[in-house]
């Protein structure tokens, strides 16, 4: 289990992390979302001690990683890690990882390279951006970690590589009891992948959502009124969008309760719409501030 306790960090006078606390259990995929500059990357970097927090700590399987760095043996931080090793050959990287990570599985590494038809290159820098990203993941999963931290894993990748990458992630999590934390601003990708979503805004952990209960807790309605929406309803809903007399509303609570409240305002027409993560973020965190 990863447990983050009261993590705070300032860069100069700017607060980048403000008393961030959360925990992530084994065998789950957690998405950390927020706009650029929300503190997602700093949080991930603090989870592997690249960034020293001013306050708070990170426990991995009940071990404080700042006191016991060996606990990071079970954590793989995948950002543009391969950039640091761009002048290495595949063989050299494999040998290096075997020296660093006791549990690195060379046979599995070779198997993954073959499965994804990774071309043989003299140096890693000769790979395209997409291949480098895939190679980083292969390297991470061949190290047999318990926790994988991914920072914007699909940034700049084409659709095919992106799908390949996502499929790989799901495969790995289903096979092993592995925990994945993904920091991204791509809500659409998380929708099909994550169990839990943590929303960051200005360095604070704003909300936590369990994706499986999202449909039960929120509904999206499209409602048309004769003139405009009655003021009485405004207190109970979030207006996602308004085009003339047509409103897209997000209602928090039971579906029947929402339906009854809307019917009471005598609209001309109303219907339930499929809910997306983006709708919740637009409503909860002020539209453009989160959803893109």
């Amino acid at each position: 289990m990863i447990e983050v306790r009261g993590l705070s960090k300032k860069f100069g006078n700017k607060t980048v992390l403000n008393n961030v606390s959360f925990s992530v259990g084994k065998g789950s995929i957690t998405g950390i979302v927020g706009r650029n500059g929300a503190g997602k990357t700093t949080l991930l970097r603090a989870l592997v001690t690249i960034v020293d927090p001013d306050e708070g700590t990170v426990m991995i399987n009940d071990q404080d990683i700042f006191r016991e760095p060996k606990a990071k043996n079970k954590v793989m931080y995948v950002s543009d890690r391969v950039e640091a090793l761009k002048n290495y050959s595949i063989q050299q990287i494999s040998s290096l990882y075997q020296d660093v990570y006791d549990q690195f599985d060379e046979a599995y590494f070779q198997e993954l390279l073959e499965r994804f038809k990774m071309p043989k290159v003299k140096k890693i820098k000769n790979y395209s951006k997409g291949r480098k990203a895939l190679f980083s993941l292969i390297l991470a999963f061949a190290s047999k970690p318990e926790y994988v931290l991914l920072d914007e894993p699909t940034d700049g990748l084409d659709v095919i590589v992106k799908k390949e990458l996502m499929r790989f992630l799901v495969d790995e999590v289903s096979k092993e009891e592995m925990t994945i934390i993904i920091a991204t601003h791509r809500l659409d990708e998380l929708e099909t992948l994550a169990d839990q979503i943590l929303v960051m805004k200005d360095g604070t952990m704003k909300e936590t959502f369990q994706l499986h209960s999202l449909q039960e807790d929120y509904q999206k309605w499209q409602v048309v009124y004769q003139e405009s929406m009655p003021e009485a309803l405004k207190a109970d809903v979030h207006i996602l969008n308004q085009t003339g007399r047509v409103y897209s509303l997000l209602f928090e609570g039971e579906q029947e309760e929402g339906k009854a409240k809307i019917e009471a305002t005598e609209p001309l027409l109303y219907e339930a719409l499929p809910l997306s993560l983006e709708d919740i973020f637009v409503a909860k965190l002020g539209g453009e501030q989160i959803a893109e």
């Binding site: 970097r45 592997v48 001690t49 690249i50 760095p69 060996k70 606990a71 990071k72 043996n73 931080y77 950002s79 543009d80 890690r81 950039e83 640091a84 090793l85 660093v100 990570y101």
Partner: peptide
Amino acid sequence: TRRHDFNLSLP
């Protein structure tokens, strides 16, 4: 370079 971050992330 990125090597510093890489080293710090190692166990």
